[in-house]
Design a protein around this nucleic acid. Sequence first.
DNA 1: TTACTATATCGCTACATAGCGATAAAATCA
DNA 2: TGATTTTATCGCTATGTAGCGATATAGTAA
Lengths: 125, 125
Amino acid sequence: MEQLDDRAMEAVAMFFSAFAVPMRLRILNALRHGERNVGELTAELGGSQANVSKHLATLARIGVIAKRTSGTSAYYRIVDPRIFQLCDLVCVQVGNRLEQEVVTRDALLRSVAPGPSGKRRAARR
Amino acid sequence: MEQLDDRAMEAVAMFFSAFAVPMRLRILNALRHGERNVGELTAELGGSQANVSKHLATLARIGVIAKRTSGTSAYYRIVDPRIFQLCDLVCVQVGNRLEQEVVTRDALLRSVAPGPSGKRRAARR
DNA sequence: TTACTATATCGCTACATAGCGATAAAATCA
DNA sequence: TGATTTTATCGCTATGTAGCGATATAGTAA
């Protein structure tokens, strides 16, 4: 393995770590249907404004969201909706895990997965 | 948003965090083409045996890999190859980022993306 | 200018964990 | 039985960062 591969691995790991924080997932989920400014997100998601702003900066630095300034407000939006495919794949995995536990998978899919793609799996149980 | 959604978000975040460490990505990459035991992985990937074992336990606890015991050896394998689709999607994203920087994207794709699916992109260099 | 609003940044604490060496636990072999 | 091998766990340090309140920065309005 070459040297560059290690750097690539680090970049990929850093990208994944952007999705490894619940608040950031909630932010991405809130931006699913359009841009929001920091105040709206803070009110909608809870937590301090400083925290939301910092997470937005993190997501923007990695390139998942983009920033648009209007007056004193900062509006953020999803850059590439394909990131939600990530959530889909993970939800299937996580859903299979949670299936054997207490939490229902449906609530999970409803909250994170995009639409009713139908092809999910027969809801046996 | 309901209570369950927070738990789901946490589960998804925890799942992503499993991929947010370079060593774990290297482990998954090493398991791509078949199962390996701890000693083989330690020799191949470097680092201490304790560290490799701990990462394997983490990945197994989340359900990404499975363990098979033979004698004193413990062989680990990928449970669901679809996890590499995750890497694909991330590699595209990260590749687009690195494209504008020093690191070449090709090395990244070579190391993390699955096989020569052909459709990847002309290897201009 | 001052006052107000919205966002970003600073300073800080608390917590999680990656990494290591040492050791325990378990299976195999002499 | 003891010795060896392989893996898992323990104890520990160092580092990263999520979260908060306070403050700085920047734009708007008077």
